[in-house]
Design a protein around this nucleic acid. Structure first.
Length: 896
RNA sequence: GCCGGGAUGGCGGAACAGGCAGACGCAGGGGACUUAAAAUCCCCCGACCGUAAUGGUCGUGCGGGUUCGAUUCCCGCUCCCGGCACCA
């Protein structure tokens, strides 16, 4: 007997990784037939220092899919890179004095090593980092194309200012009124900023959500809500005493126009300066200043008080000619709709509350429809009649001139038509989505290729002026933008000469834009760059970002995998970019991701105590001992240091602050990459949260070790034997049972992979089959079939071990022999046994079972059931009221 | 408040398409081997009743309903998680 080698992942894993890399197993050509190609991508990481468990889970899922598809014969594009611009690099510079570039590229080198040690099958030749000049400078070129297309503009308005980062944020980056990155408060500041016109694509972004069947509904619904399209009307109100000025309101309820008793306007609305009389100017200005000083969250949040200020202005209702007061109100937003709202207290909850506070009229113009059946409407109408509430539901028009008596839903279009005839209103659509504020007052980001020229003003650079490179000699002292403070960069060209702009009347002095781009820019097109990573066309005389042919070949990405936290951030930006790239001629593909898989987060139990200052004090798992009762239930925990109890908290997403993190590096060192991968896939379904559990990791390790040992001890018995290739009918006993199980297992694994990436159940099925093999004495050819099947089914998940065992069993140790062997196929005719062990229910309760031939069907089966002695015994002489027989499944006798 | 998602043993989770609830794994209990430990192997493991069974009753968040039969479908709730939150 040959030697039984011990399972040693630390030896076999790096060996296979080297072999795959040397053979170029994971590289792919760009000119193969598209229907035999598959593009699988995981959201690339920010190089923060080292991998965390969330990365390991995300990338293991993607890698298992990539390896599975390769075994199915697809040419798989599976790239990896680095989202390497961003704030932590500047933070490191401030705290540790390391240059952002040095810090970033050191981190990349370390994390690349970690990814390789996990055995992820990336096409490393396509790797790039977003901060590489080759990527960032091509992005500047795309930016200029967007400028030409009219998608970039600069404007001054109230912006979200992060007090933590000292820079502006896009709306998508403000979570609960706080900065998405630092959690520090966000306030409103009036500043000139650069914007990308994402709203130009609002309709397409929204409409196409109904055409993305491969996306989770949760993400699509979030995006629809974020875009927030609503149809309504713009209606013009004349300003009393200013015949040349009209205030245009936006409303979704033109049917309530006759009920308007006042009009509200955003405190920072541009027209206010023009129309507010001197008598009220001081009060209005003071109110505007007060509103501006509060954050949008505090101003609009749940508990925010509705505040207003009379402007001294009256406006004229275009239908009635009646004059109503104009109020500046804190809940009206300048950049939604028109910044002016007609207020109808009788039919809007917010206006109702405001009218109460300021003693304004309530005028009912819609009543409950006759015969209204809806209970909620009846109840609200009743409350309205007693003066307690607005009535916001549809109904019948009253006190509305010629529209009286109409159903309110019909009146909407009629009133709009009436207004349109008189040029006092028009149907319109507004969106909640606002343009993407792009500029950041930061160093470690991509330059915005604009200059401020002495006479020509703000002008974009021409393609031949690119690239704009960041200076390296910058000072990080934590105050302000290092680029702005650089002595010469903004006013020098790349050769160090004073920067000039060729204006129409000769050269002008010029100064560069010192804001840099939001780092969500880079992640908006990286998946397209992977398709043509080496694209450089010298003949264009400038940077050519994308090779349209190859982008069109690989996109859309067949499967994109990442966390759901990017539902309205990255995933909306990337969809917008793809459309803009199409409209600027870089591709014809308008949606970037065909199928989206959002994996759950990785969490761990937390341990804490309430410290003296009332804040929780968190403890690492290794500092705590957990006490269990006789059933294994956790009853308490104590701190090892002092033996005193600590609170066992719920499972929460791993975070450094809660001290519930696990370093994947330790996992790989202790158990190997295959165990880490198996655990990440086995412990929970992919889209659900995964709870870290070291015991369960050991279980996965135990399984792999057991499989290794089984294969090793079977090597001599199966050496030179061809796997069983006949039909299960030729076999008997354990051999027959195992071959059936083999086919059933392949079916389960294949279905799971194709349907919903059910790795956890696939692994469970493999474990079941393995357990059966260990328990029986099998024919060598059956054993060989079982082992070669198991190894192929598990190969996407535990690739190193499976390649090693495959080489052992088949004698073919070439780098791609297992992939060439392919994903196993099942034969449905070999799964089901000839007899069915029917469960017998009496009145719906399980009472016994009888074995009957599978070939028996219909009346023959009914007769066989009733004739069976065991069935008769269960019936105890009672008459059969009803006999339910489901072929192959179950038998239920309803007795009298 | 609105919109999603969820609730199954001590724990993570299975259950095709309405047909044997609890696969698989972990934890726990018992045993074998061992000087001992680790490792490995074997047995038990939803609750209650029962000496035991191939026994009985209950059991998939709660209350109803449809059905021969419901974790699965329908109606009404509770709780938990996530998103949005005066958007006119």
């Amino acid at each position: 007997m040959s030697d039984i080698r011990p399972y040693d992942p630390a030896a076999i894993e790096p060996a296979w990784q080297a072999r795959w890399e040397a053979a170029g197993c994971h590289e792919v050509a760009d000119d193969l037939p598209r229907e035999k190609c598959y593009y699988v991508l995981e959201m690339f990481p920010y190089p923060s220092g080292k991998l965390h468990m969330g990365h390991v889970r995300n990338y293991t899922i993607g890698d298992a899919v990539a390896r599975y598809q390769r075994m199915r014969g697809f040419h798989v594009l599976h790239p990896m890179g680095w989202d390497s611009f961003g704030l932590p690099a500047e933070q490191a510079a401030i705290e540790r004095g390391a240059h952002p570039k040095t810090w970033t590229y050191q981190n990349i080198a370390y994390m690349r090593g970690q990814l390789k040690r996990m055995g992820f099958s990336y096409a490393w030749s396509r790797e790039f980092a977003c901060s590489d000049p080759g990527y960032a400078e091509r992005e500047q070129r795309i930016f200029l194309d967007f400028v030409e297309r009219g998608l970039v503009y600069r404007k001054s308005s109230l912006v979200n200012w992060s007090t933590g980062l000292n820079c502006v944020l896009a709306n998508e980056q403000v979570i609960d009124g706080k900065c998405w990155r630092t959690g520090m408060p966000v306030i409103q500041k009036e500043l000139p900023q650069w914007y990308l016109r994402i709203t130009a694509y609002a309709d397409e972004l929204l409409d196409r959500t109904y055409d993305l069947p491969g996306w989770p509904d949760a993400v699509l619904i979030q995006q629809r809500h974020w875009i927030g399209r609503s149809g309504g009307a713009e209606i013009d109100f004349l300003v009393d005493g200013h015949p040349d000025v009209k205030l245009t309101v936006f409303t979704t309820r033109p049917d309530t126009l006759f009920g308007v008793t006042f009009v509200s306007i955003a405190p920072d609305h541009a027209l206010l300066d023009k129309i507010v009389p001197a008598s009220h100017r001081a009060a209005v200005d003071a109110f505007a200043a007060e509103v501006q000083a509060t954050s949008e969250h505090d101003r609009l949040g749940e508990d925010a008080e509705k505040k207003g200020c009379f402007t001294g202005v009256f406006v004229v209702n275009p239908t009635t000619g009646g004059k109503v007061p104009l109020y500046a109100a804190n809940f009206v937003l300048a950049d939604y709709g028109t910044g002016v709202v007609m207020a109808v207290p009788a039919h809007d909850h917010r206006d109702f509350a405001f009218a109460r506070t300021y003693g304004l009229d309530v005028r009912t113009v819609i009543r409950l429809a006759d015969g209204e059946a809806d209970a909620a409407r009846q109840a609200e109408w009743k409350r309205h009649q007693s003066g307690d509430s607005a009535y916001t539901e549809p109904g019948t028009m009253v006190d509305s001139a010629q529209f009286t008596g109409l159903p309110s839903e019909d009146a909407k279009a009629k009133i709009i038509a009436w207004l349109a005839e008189r040029r006092a209103g028009r149907a319109t659509t507004t969106y909640r989505l606002r343009d993407w504020c792009l500029s950041r007052q930061r160093y470690w980001g991509n330059a915005i290729p604009f200059v401020y020229a002495r006479d020509s003003g703000i002008v974009p650079l021409r393609p031949q002026d690119l690239p704009v490179r960041l200076p390296e000699d910058v000072v990080f002292d934590g105050t302000g933008n290092p680029l702005e403070k650089h002595p010469t960069w903004a006013t020098s060209d790349q050769s160090g000469q004073p920067l000039t702009w060729r204006g129409p009347n000769g050269p002008e002095s010029a100064r560069r834009e010192t804001d840099t781009m939001d780092t969500f820019m880079e992640s908006s097109w990286y998946f397209a760059r992977y398709a043509c990573h080496d694209n450089r066309r010298a003949d264009l005389g400038c940077l050519d970002p994308l090779d349209r042919k190859r982008v069109d070949h690989w996109l859309p990405v067949d499967l994109y995998i990442g966390g759901i936290e990017h539902a309205v951030l990255h995933l909306l930006y990337a969809r917008f970019f793809q459309k803009a790239l199409a409209d600027t001629g870089h591709t014809t593909v308008r949606e970037p991701f065909k199928r989206l898989l959002c994996q759950g987060m990785v969490g761990l139990e937390t341990y804490s105590r309430t410290a003296a200052d009332g804040k929780p004090q968190w403890f690492y798992p290794e500092e705590v001992e957990v006490v269990k009762d006789a059933k294994g239930k956790v009853v308490s925990a104590k701190l090892l240091a002092d033996g005193q109890p600590v609170n066992v908290g719920r499972v929460e997403k791993m975070s450094k602050s809660k001290r519930n993190t696990v370093d994947p590096q330790h996992l790989v060192e202790r158990y190997g990459a295959d165990t880490a991968r198996l655990f990440a896939l086995f412990a929970a379904p992919v889209e659900r949260d995964l709870e870290w559990n070291e015991d369960s990791v050991r279980g996965c390790s135990r399984y792999l070790k057991g499989l290794w040992t089984l294969a090793q001890t079977s090597r001599d018995k199966t050496a030179g034997v061809a796997p069983f290739a006949g039909h299960v009918r030729e076999l008997a006993g354990a051999d027959q049972q195992v071959v059936r199980k083999i086919h059933a297992t392949i079916k389960r694994a294949t279905d799971a992979m194709e349907k919903d990436f059910g790795f956890n159940t696939t692994i469970a099925a493999c474990m079941e089959l393995t357990n059966e093999l260990g328990a029986a004495e099998l024919r060598p050819d059956v054993l060989k079939l079982a082992l070669t099947t198991l190894i192929r089914l598990l190969a996407p998940m535990a690739p190193h071990l499976c390649h090693e065992l495959w080489a052992d069993l088949t004698g073919d140790g070439s780098a791609d022999s297992l992939v060439r062997a392919g994903w196993p196929a099942f034969d449905a005719s070999q799964i089901e046994a000839d007899t069915v062990d029917y469960p017998i229910q009496i009145n719906g309760k399980l009472r016994g079972r009888v074995a009957l031939a599978r070939t028996l069907t219909g009346k023959d089966l009914d007769a066989a059931v009733l004739a069976h002695a065991d069935v008769a015994a269960l019936m105890t002489g009672r008459p059969v009221k009803k006999l339910v027989v489901v072929h192959g499944k179950i038998i239920n006798l309803v007795l009298g």
